[in-house]
Design a protein around this nucleic acid. Structure first.
Lengths: 176, 176
DNA sequence: AAAGCTTTGTACCGATCGGTACAGACCATA
DNA sequence: TATGGTCTGTACCGATCGGTACAAAGCTTT
């Protein structure tokens, strides 16, 4: 249910995701929808954001922080990210929210997502041998590179562009 | 007039920019608005996109392509971009459109903007001594870095993050 | 001042927005 | 089979959506 909801928000943004679109995408009528989410659209978006954050925490952040091998955790991140964003055919819901007017209403979730990612990646980079400042800068660069590549890939309608950008980011970490 | 319109689209997205918001931001009533833009919201957005494209063509793309000194053209780009996006406090309207459902309706303008930018930057990089493939890859990285930094800066509500990212991109081109 | 154009405010249109009310369907326990 | 709670489809709410109609206001030209 939450994944389907997420696709609607991802595709149309928070304001653009009308209840009509949501009922069509989920197959649920308004009755069921407001039974499951008494808080309406805002609650739906919040739970979707929480679910996404949970997925990344489990599949990306935790391996970055706790994996025995830092390089392996980073490599796993790139693989997971490429799969999650369907090689650039899918867009980052948190990024969409961050750019739009919805950012203010969901600022905690939006800020928390990128902050946790950046922290986890920086930690892995440190364990991989980078200095404190190098790790922080590089992790910001990598996150920005990913988000920007999603924008460019979607603007050009060219999924290969995303995978290419991801490969170059990985190479930059490995040391070119 | 177009700049004010642009701010509304930039802040609320295409769908979110209601005529009420537009009349408030521009001070024009519906009568005047539909007299100036008989094509309605879609025409407003198209003219705003064209104006932005024109600005970047004049202030960024042309100097990159035609400037006698390639390095100077690139440095000028970074300065112009930092000023245009108000050091990350402002967001890229074309990027917002690219991520949203409006992309399909304005695909030509969205695609053209990033394509022209990428081409112009790659050309300057070639003239600055990079190989053909290096220039193409690097220009994609720089554009993605800029767009991604806008997302991150807005998510973190931290304008300094954008300027920092811009500095690192410039350093990467200069050769670190 | 008269005539003819451009510009503007306002009232209004049908459609859709997010959200609510509620009766009935469903389903488990007894 | 009766009962009580969980779901769900539908009708409806006021507000707002993008857009239109049009008359009055302004401004130019004669």
């Amino acid at each position: 249910m939450l994944p389907k909801l997420g696709e609607v928000f991802r595709t149309y943004g928070y304001e653009g995701a009308s209840l009509t679109l949501i009922t069509q995408a989920t197959g649920l009528g308004k009755g069921s929808l407001y039974h499951l989410f008494p808080g309406g659209k805002a609650q739906m978006a919040k739970e979707v954001l929480a679910e996404i954050d949970g997925w990344f925490e489990r599949e990306v952040f935790a391996p970055l922080r706790d994996g025995a091998d830092a390089e392996a955790g980073i490599a796993h991140m790139f693989k997971a990210v490429d799969a999650y964003f369907r090689s650039g055919r899918r867009v980052c819901l948190v990024g969409v929210f961050a750019l739009g007017a919805a950012r203010d209403e969901f600022s905690a979730a939006v800020h928390g997502y990128f902050d946790a990612w950046c922290e986890a990646l920086a930690q892995a980079l440190r364990r991989a041998g980078f200095s404190r400042s190098e790790a922080m800068e590089l992790s910001e660069d990598v996150l920005a590179g990913i988000q920007g590549a999603l924008v460019l890939a979607r603007a050009a309608d060219d999924a290969k562009m995303f995978t290419r950008a991801l490969k170059r980011l990985a190479k930059r970490i490995a040391g070119d």
